[in-house]
């Protein structure tokens, strides 16, 4: 599927002059799913990947009642200019890990943006054709690979493959930063999950 990213860059930044016609680099990513799926952790790795790539970043979690109610989401902005509002109202990239999140946020994605959905848990397709849709059976893959808690990192790998906001080398550094020092053994297994998602063709 051809990338439509350039379309929304034009829509969002409307360069007025030749000098401004550089490609504006801003990724506004919304990670959404159930509490316990590792939504906030995926967002943290994304933010660190941005930081390691010398970009400006922000990370904003949902907190309070909606977390206790079972849904979690996390707003990550990665940009080559300072981040203004840390709230992602219209994502360039949506990572949906359950059906309620998919139906809630599908409409908000910018034209030309990407929706990456866990097709093990979301059987429907987007109700629009102006975005790029990437289904990936992350939960099933995680189960097959006997890393059931790392569906979040498999789908994160697909996000990297699609949006290209960081190289895999940078992603590794980000994982090293995000995993607590007492759990270093988790670095390799996280990378294995990310690579599986990164290389997934569906």
């Amino acid at each position: 599927m051809p990338s439509k990213r350039l379309n929304y860059i034009a829509i969002r930044f409307m360069p007025h002059t030749a000098a401004e016609r550089r490609i504006a680099m801003t990724y506004e990513i919304l990670f959404a799913g159930f509490g316990g799926q590792g939504i906030l952790f995926s967002g943290k790795v994304a933010a660190y990947a941005g930081l390691m790539g010398d970009m400006e970043v922000s990370w904003l979690p949902s907190y309070g009642p909606e977390m206790r109610g079972g849904t979690a989401n996390c707003h990550v902005i990665i940009s080559d200019s300072p981040v203004g509002s840390p709230i992602v109202n219209n994502p360039t990239d949506l990572v949906a890990m359950n059906l309620p999140s998919f139906t809630k946020f599908e409409k908000t994605v910018l034209t030309g943006g990407n929706i990456i959905a866990d097709s093990s848990l979301i059987s429907i397709k987007p109700d629009r054709d102006d975005i790029n849709f990437y289904p990936i059976p992350a939960t099933q893959m995680a189960s097959d690979m006997e890393i059931p808690k790392l569906a979040n990192m498999i789908i994160f790998g697909k996000l990297i493959a699609v949006s290209k906001f960081a190289t895999m080398e940078t992603v590794r550094k980000a994982v090293e930063k995000s995993v607590p020092p007492s759990k270093k053994e988790l670095i390799e297994v996280n990378m294995k999950a990310i690579e599986a998602g990164y290389n997934y063709i569906g």
Binding site: A47, V57, S58, W59, L60, V83, I87
Partner: peptide
Amino acid sequence: DGMLGQMMEP
């Protein structure tokens, strides 16, 4: 405020 308390930045 709650947003500044909860958000992460470098």
